[in-house]
């Protein structure tokens, strides 16, 4: 995974609540057996018109937001399915940070596994950042994960954000969870041995 330390980029405002994973990436894109190439399907129904041409009203089709690396959205972003294709699509488009008042749990987790930083902030703060993203001539924000700060294009006071310390550590270092867990192989084995004794019904011969 690519480490996430400091991200400088344009932020796009998406003032919608309950943006679900079907909206982020419709189900027909889920037939892929790869992680890449999903950026073109990101927000498909919002981004394209019936004939396949770009919808000029959608924020990610307009300058400067079509170059967005940060998304600012309404509450409960990413609700719905567990599809990791949603963060894969964001990443493939170039977005590595989503700011919202709240996220759905599975999507939130999936982001961290892919080097995307989801930031939860109070609704008023999100609204203020969203307004800046919409009105600043060059809405470039800097996300500083080391200092846990968002630097704003307006020059207003930076916004401090909270992040789980372990998840922050993994993002900063670009760590692979599986590699970390496999260092605990002895502990897992010991647990399994005890489990075989205490709950033998959980083990069955391979079919």
């Amino acid at each position: 995974m690519q480490p996430f330390r400091r991200l400088e980029g344009i932020a796009a405002p998406l003032p919608m609540v309950n943006v679900d994973t079907d909206k982020i990436i419709p189900a027909h894109w889920l037939k892929t057996i790869k992680r890449t190439g999903l950026g073109v399907g990101l927000f498909e129904t919002l981004r394209y018109r019936e004939d396949g041409s770009e919808n000029p009203d959608f924020v990610l089709n307009r300058e400067p937001w079509r170059r967005a690396r940060i998304l600012i959205a309404g509450e409960n972003f990413g609700c719905g399915s567990s599809r990791e294709h949603a963060p894969w699509a964001l990443l493939d488009f170039g977005i590595r940070c989503v700011i919202a008042p709240s996220f759905a749990d599975i999507f939130f987790n999936n982001c961290f596994k892919n080097g995307i930083l989801p930031i939860v902030l109070p609704r008023e703060t999100v609204d203020a950042l969203m307004a800046e993203a919409e009105t600043s001539p060059e809405p470039v924000f800097t996300i500083d994960l080391e200092r846990q700060l968002i630097l704003r294009p307006s020059g207003n006071a930076p916004v401090r954000f909270e992040v789980d310390p372990f998840k922050r550590h993994c993002l900063l270092e670009g760590l692979d969870d599986i590699g970390l867990t496999l260092k605990k192989a002895h502990e897992i084995e010991a647990y399994e041995e005890a489990l075989r004794r205490e709950k033998p019904w959980l083990f069955r011969p391979a079919a």
Partner: peptide
């Protein structure tokens, strides 16, 4: 509970998951 594909890989490889208590 439902998990993403990275976690699917994690469970396949380790039979465990890293989780915070809900």
């Amino acid at each position: 509970f439902g998990i993403g594909t990275s976690e699917v890989e994690h469970v396949l490889a380790t039979q465990t998951l890293l989780q915070k208590r809900p």
